[in-house]
Simulated assay, not measured.
Amino acid sequence: MPPTPLDQFRAAVLADPPAQAHLAEPQDPAIFEARALAWAAARGLSLAAADLIEGGRPDPVGMHRFLPAPVTRHDWPCRDWLPISFPAAPEPAVQWFNFAGISPNTPFFEDAVREAAGRPFNRLFRTATPLASFLGRTDLRAPSGFIFHMSRCGSTLVSQMLGAAPGHVSISEAPPLDAMIQHRFPDPEMHADALRGLVHAYGRGAEHLFVKLDSWHTRALPLLRRAFPETPWIFLYRDPVEVLVSQLRLRGVQTVPGVVPLEWFGLTAEDAHLPERAFIARILERTCGAVTEHGTDKGLLINYAQLPEALFDQILPHFGIVPDAAARDSMAMVAGRHSKAPAARFQADGEAKQREADAELRAIAAQYLAPVFNALEARRTAA
């Protein structure tokens, strides 16, 4: 079939990075349509408003990004594009959005993805790149640091502080990274190779890239160290009672049986029938236990109680970062805000969580989590 006017328009735009930036910025479908029609007309392309209708359809939660990508290319798009998903079917591929001025340094990367999903440009130009294009690359830079964590222990604060300095990109719990980590590859080296490509795609143009992983990715420490043997990393943890209280207030997905496969944690189907509190504690124990099991080469242990001062005293030196005064001020400003709701002031909640814990919860913390917490504390203080 001959190319349609929309096909011709897409091909012309994808060959012109400045045009992508110009067209990807508008959130209003009417503004996007006006820009697209004017740009096409100036180049003799017979584009009509009807050709752009898909870009303006209501889609408040961005469901279009879960459909097959309208564009496939075997090379990478320019660096304004970032990976937003890694679907395994029908063939493994990385999908991209153009972020056009949208900062990826949000409390969670998914926040930035949702904003980008609302842009009409991304409705029409979401691009898929086959997995093969992420293998065997020789132009890759490793990130400046990885952030592993127990969950609910200050990792979002650390990620936000690191991302506050000019030239820093801090990617927090990116869904494509989780999907690729959990994907079954034919061999470990191919898995590591793919991860190197994906992580590099987030840091193109950045002076420093930091990657905050999902809490359950401690279970992938051997894989990530294979992929990035020289990258320093930290593991954040907190008083188990306080983390349990936080999880009971609002369950993390990893503490809901069946969301993250039980075998990922080395658990069995029988473990899913544990009482709620015990199951959460078991997941947290396996999360922390992976750090003590696999060792802390290139790693630094940080107790939540050491934050935010530890960012300047320990984490930045560990990551090899020497910030200037302006960068330090930018990071320090973040420390006074709530990491997951930056418009709100931070308020310490450790004492409130301790008061909220009943005797049963304390007994569960002692049974499941005290041994691994004490082991982490012993290693930290010894270091």
Results as ranks from 00 to 15, higher is better:
A375I: 02
T292K: 02
P3F: 10
V253I: 12
Q182E: 15
G44T: 05
P58I: 06
E276M: 00
G197Y: 06
G44N: 08
R114T: 10
L23W: 03
A344N: 14
L67V: 10
F146M: 15
M63L: 15
A382N: 13
V211I: 05
G203Y: 07
E173Y: 04
P257T: 01
P2Y: 03
R238L: 10
V158K: 09
R65V: 03
G56H: 13
P5G: 00
Q95H: 04
G154A: 06
S151W: 01
F109C: 11
Q160R: 15
N303Q: 01
R152H: 11
L140H: 03
A11E: 09
A332G: 04
V256I: 12
E115K: 14
H338A: 07
P222G: 07
F32N: 09
A359M: 05
E309Y: 03
A363D: 11
D214C: 03
P18S: 01
S339R: 13
G320F: 07
K340P: 02
G295K: 07
R119P: 14
S151R: 09
M331G: 12
R337Y: 08
P29D: 09
H217A: 05
E54F: 09
Q306W: 06
F9H: 14
F32L: 09
R277Q: 02
S170F: 03
A220I: 13
D75R: 11
L82V: 01
D28H: 07
R286C: 14
L301K: 10
D271C: 09
D349A: 12
V253T: 13
D187H: 13
S151V: 06
P371Q: 05
F319S: 10
V158I: 10
R379W: 08
P60K: 15
R286H: 11
G62Q: 08
T138Q: 15
A48Q: 10
L23Q: 04
P188Q: 13
L177K: 04
A206N: 03
L213F: 07
L52Q: 08
R152G: 12
E285S: 14
F108H: 03
P18R: 01
A194W: 08
V113F: 06
D111K: 09
L14R: 05
T231V: 14
D358H: 04
A206C: 01
A206K: 02
N374M: 13
D16I: 01
N105D: 14
V322G: 14
R282A: 00
R57M: 13
V243L: 02
F108C: 05
D349H: 13
F32Q: 11
Q314C: 01
P58M: 07
A128D: 08
S170L: 08
R114K: 12
A363T: 08
S159D: 00
A117N: 08
A42L: 03
W39A: 05
